[in-house]
C-alpha cells in the first residue's frame, strides 16, 4: 500500500537549497503584492488560509494523520480573539495570544481522544469532535449564534502599529504567516519531523525502535492545532468578524481541499493550494451552489489523477524538493 503522500522527499543539502530559493521567491512575491494593485483583503485572507493549510499539512503530509476537523481550531481561536478584543477590550497582541492558546488547549483535549485510533477512524473522530464544537458554539451565548461576533475592532498592535491601515495590516499578517511557516518548516526538518515521517511510513516499526509514537503524534497534533488557531486569530483582524462558517465541516473540507490541490506533504503546496481555492471562490462567487459542485469535482479529479498536487507535480518533474 502506498502512503498518503506520493511526494517523495529527498533530503540533503540540495533539497534545503531548493527550498531556501523557493522561500526567497515566495517572500519577495508576497512583499511586492500590495504594490501591484491586487485587492489586499484577498491576499490577506489567502495568507491566513495558507498558514491554516500548512498547519493541516504538518499532520497529514508528515504524520499521515488526516484531520477532518481543523475548522474547530480556526473557529475557536477566531471566537476567543474576537471576544477578547471586542468585549474584554484587550490589545491585539494579547487577543492573538488568547485565541492561539485556546486553540492549543482544544488541540490537547481533542488530540488525546483522536490519537487513540488510526487511519480512517482518526478522520471520522476529528470530524465528529469538530461537529460537537460546532453545536457548542451554536448554543454558547458569547458567540452570538447565527449572527457571530461582528465589527471587531482592530486596534493598535503593541500600542503603536495601527492595524486599521490596510497596508500596515497586510505586513503584520504577512509577518505572522512567515513566522508560522518557518516554525512548521523547522519542525519538519528536525529530528522530531523525521520521527513523524517514520510513523507515517510504518508505525509498528517506529514503536519497535523504541519511539513512543503516541507522544509524537500528540505533539504534532497540538502544534498543528496551535498554528491553525494562530491563523484563525490573524483572520479576525482581516475579516473583523467571527462566525459559525469558520467552525462548520465545510470549512474543514476546504482546508483538506487546499492542501490536496497544492500537494500533500510538500512544503509550499498548501500555500499555492490556499490561494488557488480562495481565488476560485472569489471569481465564482456569483455562481451560487455551483462552487460546491466545482469543489467536489476538484476533489474527485485530484484523487483520481493528480494526487501529487500542483507543487508536488512541479517538484516531481524537475526532480526537486519543494
Amino acid at each position: 500500500m502506498t502512503s498518503i503522500t506520493e511526494n517523495a522527499m529527498p533530503v540533503g543539502r540540495r533539497a534545503i537549497r531548493d527550498e531556501m530559493i523557493a522561500f526567497g521567491i515566495m517572500t519577495a512575491v508576497l512583499m511586492a503584492l500590495p504594490f501591484t494593485g491586487v485587492y489586499p483583503f484577498f491576499v490577506m485572507q489567502g495568507l491566513c488560509f495558507a498558514l491554516l493549510a500548512c498547519a493541516f499539512n504538518l499532520l497529514i503530509g508528515y504524520g499521515g494523520l488526516l484531520s477532518f476537523g481543523h475548522a474547530m481550531f480556526l473557529g475557536t481561536a477566531g471566537y476567543v480573539t474576537g471576544h477578547a478584543l471586542k468585549v474584554w477590550g484587550l490589545p491585539p497582541e494579547l487577543g492573538i495570544i488568547a485565541g492561539t492558546a485556546a486553540a492549543a488547549a482544544l488541540g490537547v483535549l481533542t488530540g488525546l481522544i483522536a490519537i487513540r485510533r488510526q487511519g480512517i477512524y482518526f478522520a471520522m473522530i476529528t470530524l465528529a469532535l469538530a461537529q460537537l464544537m460546532y453545536f457548542v458554539y451554536l448554543q454558547a451565548p458569547f458567540t452570538h449564534g447565527e449572527d457571530g461576533i461582528q465589527g471587531i475592532p482592530q486596534g493598535h498592535l503593541f500600542g503603536f502599529i495601527n492595524l486599521s491601515n490596510p497596508t500596515t495590516l497586510y505586513f503584520v499578517v504577512l509577518a505572522g504567516f512567515l513566522f508560522g511557516f518557518l516554525i512548521i518548516y523547522r519542525a519538519i526538518n528536525s529530528p522530531f519531523g523525521e520521527v513523524l515521517k517514520a510513523i507515517r511510513e510504518n508505525e509498528p516499526r517506529a514503536i519497535s525502535l523504541g519511539y513512543r509514537t503516541d507522544h509524537y503524534k500528540l505533539l504534532a497534533f497540538v502544534l498543528s492545532a496551535t498554528l491553525a488557531g494562530f491563523a484563525g486569530s490573524l483572520k479576525v483582524f482581516v475579516a473583523q468578524n467571527a462566525s459559525l462558517t469558520d467552525v462548520h465541516w465545510t470549512m474543514s473540507g476546504e482546508i483538506v481541499l487546499m492542501t490536496l490541490v497544492g500537494g500533500l506533504g510538500t512544503v509550499f503546496g498548501p500555500v499555492v493550494g490556499a490561494f488557488v481555492i480562495i481565488a476560485m471562490q472569489q471569481y465564482l462567487a456569483g455562481f451560487g451552489q455551483w462552487v460546491t459542485v466545482i469543489q467536489g469535482a476538484i476533489f474527485v479529479i485530484c484523487v483520481l489523477t493528480f494526487r501529487r498536487g500542483v507543487v508536488g507535480e512541479i517538484a516531481h518533474y524537475f526532480k526537486r524538493s519543494l
Binding site: 500500500m1 502506498t2 502512503s3 498518503i4 497529514i60 488526516l66 477532518f68 487511519g119 480512517i120 478522520a123 473540507g253 483538506v256 490536496l260 451560487g288 451552489q289 455551483w290 462552487v291 460546491t292 459542485v293 469543489q295 467536489g296 469535482a297 476538484i298 476533489f299 474527485v300 485530484c302 484523487v303 483520481l304 494526487r307
Partner: peptide, 26 residues
C-alpha cells in the same frame, strides 16, 4: 483506488458527496 491509502477513498467520496448535494441544492 484499490491499493491506495484508505484516506483517498474518504476524500474521493467526500468530493462526490459535495457534487451530488451541490447539484440538488442548485
Amino acid at each position: 483506488l484499490s491499493g491506495l491509502d484508505h484516506l483517498y477513498g474518504l476524500l474521493l467520496t467526500f468530493g462526490l458527496g459535495l457534487i451530488i448535494q451541490g447539484v440538488f441544492q442548485n
